[in-house]
């Protein structure tokens, strides 16, 4: 049997899963801690992709083009996005904590439109992509872009880091506690507004990081964020709101199912994913790894 196409799809599925995880982890944390469903998360991810591209280009002009320049570009873009996230929380999101769900949704929905159009205004309608010029490797009967390994490795490392941060550090424990009871955490004398700002910054920073990391594999294009955000919602729903492990497993499910559906039923890949979401929501509305507590 020729396993080439399957290997190829497995790698592309795993890469996709990692990006979905980096986005959904932030989305799920933000929802868990602040109860805000951030529709603009994927749009900020897209923005970061464009920013990374511009920094990469700028550095290339200054110091001569080199694939290694991608590293500082991603670092700068991530920091910048975290800063943008912090500012967004401080000046916009914070105004709506006491408001109704629809007004919060409207706010982040408005950000989707504004940021998406700003990207068009600044970078135009052309797609952006970084070509690292790496030769594909031959393995298991097929040619694999070695960058897939970088993405998968990065994703797993970030997941492990997040787990360590949430379970083994003081700040992480506070964040987890805030998911369960905000009022209790603030009653213990912890400055909840600061936690909010930092969690939002971390979530948007993760999305920013993902935007940069994915740039050499897929071009950034206007409107992609609209598809990606609903896939992230799918991941968060399947995994369970607030559960990091659930988000990781659900990302793998969505990424791999998508990649293999393309092999067997090319056009129905995304329909498959929403079919899974529907089954999970009907069977376990709190998700595979979520707790019934918050349902």
């Amino acid at each position: 049997m020729d396993i080439g196409p399957y290997v190829l799809q497995l790698f592309s599925g795993l890469s996709r899963a990692m990006v979905l995880f980096l986005l959904s982890a932030g989305l799920s944390l933000i929802f868990g801690v602040m109860n805000i469903l951030n529709f603009a998360h994927a749009t900020l991810w897209l923005l970061s992709g464009y920013i990374t591209f511009s920094i990469f280009q700028f550095l290339g002009e200054q110091f001569g083009a080199s694939p290694l320049l991608l590293l500082p570009s991603i670092a700068w873009a991530t920091a910048l996005m975290a800063l943008i996230g912090f500012a967004l929380e401080r000046f916009l999101i914070r105004q709506t904590y006491e408001r109704e769900l629809p007004e919060q949704l409207l706010l982040t929905f408005a950000l989707v439109l504004i940021v998406g159009d700003l990207i068009k205004l600044i970078w135009g309608v052309e797609n952006r992509r970084i070509n690292l010029g790496v030769e594909p490797m031959e393995m298991l009967d097929t040619l694999v872009n070695p960058y897939h390994f970088v993405i998968v490795g990065t994703g797993v490392a970030v997941a492990a880091g997040l787990w360590f941060f949430l379970h083994r550090t003081r700040f992480g424990k506070i964040v987890r506690a805030a998911v369960y009871s905000r009022s209790m955490v603030s009653a213990l004398g912890i400055r909840i507004p600061m936690i909010y700002g930092l969690v939002f910054a971390a979530g948007v920073g993760l999305a920013g990081f993902a935007g940069g990391v994915f740039l050499p594999l897929l071009p950034m294009a206007l409107g992609v964020d609209h598809d990606v955000i609903v896939q992230c919602f799918a991941v968060v729903v399947i995994g369970g709101f607030g559960s990091m492990l659930g988000t990781f497993v659900a990302s793998l499910i969505v990424g791999v199912v998508y990649a293999f559906s393309i092999l067997f039923w090319p056009d129905g890949a995304l329909a498959m994913i929403f079919l899974i979401v529907i089954v999970v929501l009907i069977w376990r509305p709190w998700g595979l790894f979520g707790t019934e507590l918050r349902y």
Binding site: L92, Q95, T96, R99, E103, L106, L107, F109, A110, L111, V112, L113, I114, G116, D117, L118, L121
Partner: peptide, 13 residues
Amino acid sequence: PLTIGTIILLIVL
């Protein structure tokens, strides 16, 4: 989109 987004933002705020 930029225009309506800004208007919605201002309305919400």
